[in-house]
Simulated assay, not measured.
Amino acid sequence: MERPSTSKSRGTCKYYKDPRGCFAGGKCKFKHAEPDVEALTPYDQAKTCRFYVQGYCKRGESCWFKHSLPKSTGSAAEDDEPEPCSICFDTPTTYGLLVSCSHVFCIKCIKEWRESARKNNEENMMKVTKQCPMCRAESKYVMPSSIPFRNGDSRKESALATYKESMAKVRCRHFERSKKDPTMTTFCPFGKDCFYQHLNDDGTPYIFADGVDVNMRA
């Protein structure tokens, strides 16, 4: 694994080749490798990724911190054991969690299913794409997650809130595109249900009266 660049370059530990070894062990913040070798420090390898614990790490398998939950979480950690996707049966790297049920999917599989369902059934696309393919529970959106949180788990609600907060900082591409097109009125197919940011030219929030149920049909 390539070690990503950081603001502080960490040199090679001068004790790791000593016959007595490095007394810092896993807490050493310097590399235990030759100077010209890119490697993680024992400190980095042992440190748990805080984004993974919160529910989602964008780096996935390329993250240089450890992706595991602290054992002190007790029975909850046991419930977070990797589960196969209900569509492809592989163990997901990133899960696609639905709001209204606990079925497990890869983020890629569930998005592809919802898109194919929409194309194959244009007349009832809102009804089809908003449902779980297993139990038909309604879910308007899919949340990426590193952990298969179950419904009723408070951590799922916390992860969802963090995800929404993060998305709200990004400008909506549909909204921005409509603002640049003089032939269109200001528009977003998801309306007030959209996670992304909608701002007027003066920087104030643009408020939609309707949500995805109305705007998507329009």
Rank of each mutant, 00 (worst) to 15 (best):
R114L: 08
G152I: 07
W64H: 09
C135P: 01
E165C: 03
V53I: 15
F89I: 02
S102A: 01
N121H: 11
E122R: 00
Q54T: 02
D79Y: 02
M143G: 01
K111N: 15
N124L: 12
T91N: 09
R173H: 12
A77V: 08
M143C: 05
F89P: 01
A77C: 06
P82S: 08
A117G: 11
I107T: 02
S100G: 08
T48N: 11
S102F: 04
P70Q: 07
S154M: 08
S139N: 11
S102D: 00
S62V: 05
H67S: 09
E115A: 10
G55P: 02
R171P: 01
S166F: 13
P92Q: 08
D80W: 15
S146A: 11
R50F: 09
R155I: 00
C132L: 10
P84F: 08
N121F: 07
D90C: 09
E61D: 10
K119Y: 07
P82E: 07
Q131R: 11
W64D: 04
C49N: 04
P148G: 07
I147L: 14
D80L: 13
Y56H: 15
E157P: 03
S158W: 00
M143W: 09
G96L: 13
V170C: 03
P84D: 02
S62K: 10
C85Q: 02
R50M: 08
C63Q: 04
R118I: 02
H67L: 10
D79L: 13
E157Q: 10
D90P: 01
L97A: 07
E61R: 13
P133W: 14
E112V: 06
M167I: 00
E61I: 06
G74Q: 12
F51T: 03
L160N: 00
S100D: 10
G55N: 06
V128N: 09
T94E: 14
C172E: 01
E123G: 02
E78D: 12
R50N: 07
P144H: 13
E115R: 09
E112K: 14
E112R: 12
R155S: 10
K66W: 04
R150P: 00
S154R: 11
C63G: 01
A76H: 04
R171T: 11
T91M: 04
E138T: 11
S62M: 04
R171M: 14
V104T: 15
T73K: 03
T48D: 12
C109R: 06
R155A: 08
D153Y: 03
S72F: 11
M125N: 10
T94W: 10
A77W: 01
K108H: 12
S72V: 08
Q54L: 12
E81I: 13
M126R: 12
M167R: 15
C106T: 01
D153C: 09
K66M: 09
E157D: 12
V53C: 13
W113N: 11
Y141D: 06
E165D: 05
C85A: 04
Q54S: 15
N124G: 04
P82W: 13
C135V: 04
A117L: 03
Q54H: 11
K127W: 07
C172G: 00
C132G: 02
I110S: 03
Q54K: 15
